[in-house]
């Protein structure tokens, strides 16, 4: 059975992974290569690398960064930011990207979606939609011009699907970095209208939010950014909790299935006798 995917969204600004809050405030986290390596080891299902400075600075995608980051990435890598031409997509694929994500092009240059899908296949093209709630209706947010446009996220998603997109990444700007949980209503508005897989993003605080979004929407994948950055083994610990309710992949050696958690899904300490016994267990590193 197809498993629900847990993805990590790495927001990169001027070559540094940042913690983003409401698309306004940015706090530095570290190098993309290191973040990718750790997330990969912790059993993430997919990594989305979004360069938010490329389009703003009107520069090319940062190929060198993608090349370095992909070296330690043995899960799918989606790269977004600054993509305006087919040749750039070709170059990104050569640098180790598996999929590309289009945001500004979806708003302004829809032929790029169609042409890219024809050459690279629809499965390669993710269209990312940023949404805000304005006067009780959802609107598409154009982060370059810092204003909403007169199209609903659902309309844009449907248009992108018709143009040849293979996946929709729906991002709630209001929930971004707020730890208030996913915007279920927004995500459902997209899932109801498109047939292609939907990845949701924005607002995840802990395992409960992932379980909620998979129980209440048809989303294929849920992504989080900030939430994964600050705890050791954040991914496998979260997945251990999610897997009790939802079919997710839990293949890491440390799978935390026998651990207990508190109400905030934080790891509880094992009992002293258990810890004492563990002293005598030799854990061999798996050789492939």
């Amino acid at each position: 059975m197809l498993k629900k995917r847990i993805a990590a969204n790495l927001v990169v600004k001027d070559g540094v992974v940042v913690q983003s809050i409401n698309f306004k405030k940015y706090l530095p986290v570290g190098k993309p290569t290191i973040a990718v390596e750790f997330l990969n080891q912790w059993g993430i299902d997919e990594i989305i690398l979004t360069d938010i400075s490329a389009s703003k600075n009107k520069s090319e995608p940062n190929y060198q960064m993608v090349k370095l980051a992909s070296t330690k990435c043995y899960v799918p890598l989606t790269v977004g930011g600054g993509i305006t031409q087919i040749d750039q997509i070709k170059e990104l694929m050569h640098c180790g990207a598996d999929k590309i994500s289009l945001n500004q092009s979806a708003i302004k240059n829809s032929t790029l979606i169609t042409n890219a899908a024809k050459i690279f296949g629809d499965q390669c093209i993710v269209v990312s939609v940023d949404a805000v709630l304005e006067n009780n209706t959802y609107k598409v947010f154009d982060y370059i011009n810092n204003k909403t446009i007169n199209e609903s996220p659902a309309q844009l998603a449907k248009r992108a699907e018709d143009l040849g997109a293979g996946e929709i990444l729906i991002n709630s700007v209001d929930r971004d970095g707020g730890y208030r949980g996913y915007d279920i209503e927004l995500i459902n508005s997209i899932c109801d209208i498109v047939k292609i897989p939907v990845i949701c993003c924005g607002g995840a605080k802990n395992a409960k939010d992932f379980i909620e979004v998979f129980s209440k929407t048809k989303a294929s994948a849920a992504s989080a950014a900030n939430f994964f950055h600050f705890t050791e083994h954040s991914v496998n610990i979260t997945k251990a909790n999610i897997s009790k309710h939802i079919n997710v992949r839990l293949d890491t050696f440390a799978n935390y299935q026998d651990n207990t958690f508190d109400n905030s899904f934080r790891l509880k300490k094992k009992s002293d006798t258990e810890l004492e016994e563990m002293l005598f267990i030799k854990i061999e590193k798996e050789v492939i």
């Binding site: 059975m1 995917r5 299902d45 499965q123 293979g166 897989p197 048809k218 294929s220």
Partner: peptide, 13 residues
Amino acid sequence: PSSFAVPHVGWNN
């Protein structure tokens, strides 16, 4: 059937 999204994307056994 419409309950299955296409493309088939993700981890499957």
